[in-house]
Amino acid sequence: MAAPKEESPVLVAFTLDFETGGLKCQTSACTQIAVHATRLDTFEKIGTYQSYIAPYNRKEIAGATKKRKTLKSKYDNDDAVSMDYEARALEYSAITMDMLESYGKPIEIVAQEVLQFMIDNTPKCPKNMKPFLIGQHIAFDEGFLCQMFEYAGLMNELKKVLRGDEDFYGNWHPLYVDTIVLGQLALCHLPNVNSYKLEIMCENLGIELDDAHDADADVSATTNVAAVLTQRMRSIGGEYEGEELAISKAEKSRKHFKI
């Protein structure tokens, strides 16, 4: 009697985007996060998470920065220093400090919720098939993800969920795929393509640009770019054999994208 055929594990990826108070993950604040969970066999969206992040202060994290030691008396008090919220960055993302104070959650709570979201949307699978990240210029967002999880003291928990490796200095980083690199592989032969911004890649790939004025819109567009390029990779002789991959739809309102 033949053994029953085992089903292949379902691969899942998390598309990630942050809106921030600046460009430096060491000092700039996270202001908004959006994460989509996607099945990679069909590119079906199986879950979404998004949240504003309430204003928060800087926090010294071991190994993050080298700080010169100074002698202090027991009467010295460290004044709280806010993370950077640059006016230009807030204007670009159409996020105000009032919005963050009214609708934002503490960064520690957001980190806990993102972690639980990832756990809830990760099927049982071997370690070499754990989820990874997808994003447009994802190295930028990965830095802010690490800031958030280090700030919340949950980096070791994140390691259990995502694939990743330690760098030369012993710092762990999650595995990610950058849609800019995928777009360059797919589109660099076209004479009219000299930029790989999200809206330009959508135009060249025939993707309707859906825009909802926040990080969630960027995530939807980024996932769609990855889906179309994946479908091209799966084609044989120029023909795709299989069902069409899922493309997300969202309300349009924003006129620009960050990257």
Rank of each mutant, 00 (worst) to 15 (best):
E150P: 05
A87R: 07
S8N: 14
K258M: 03
E239V: 14
Y196V: 01
A54K: 03
M233G: 04
H173V: 06
I138C: 08
V181Q: 06
V228K: 07
E243R: 11
E243C: 14
R163F: 00
L133N: 10
E101F: 12
L16V: 04
T222H: 04
V177G: 10
I95K: 04
N57I: 01
V110M: 02
L198F: 01
A221K: 03
A227I: 01
V12T: 15
L229V: 04
I61A: 05
Y52A: 02
I247V: 05
S195H: 06
V177L: 12
Y240D: 04
K66N: 14
A62M: 15
A152W: 10
F168I: 05
Y52I: 00
Q32V: 06
D98E: 14
T20W: 15
Q26A: 13
A139Q: 15
L115A: 09
D41M: 10
R88E: 15
D120E: 08
L162P: 03
R254E: 06
D214A: 08
F168Y: 09
A94F: 14
H36Y: 12
Q231A: 10
D178I: 04
L209M: 10
S73Y: 03
A221C: 13
L100N: 00
A217H: 13
K24H: 09
G238P: 07
G21Y: 02
K252S: 09
D178S: 01
N77R: 11
L100C: 07
S28T: 03
E44L: 09
A215W: 05
G242C: 01
V12Y: 07
L182H: 00
K74F: 13
E239I: 13
A37E: 15
V12R: 05
T38L: 02
D178Y: 00
E243N: 15
A227F: 06
V10R: 07
L185V: 04
R234N: 12
K127A: 14
V177R: 12
I61P: 01
L71Q: 03
T31Y: 00
M97L: 07
A226V: 02
I180D: 08
T223F: 05
K197V: 09
Y169L: 15
A13D: 10
K124G: 11
Y52M: 05
H36F: 11
I134H: 03
L198W: 05
A221I: 07
L205T: 05
A215L: 07
T48I: 07
Y56N: 08
T38F: 03
A94I: 00
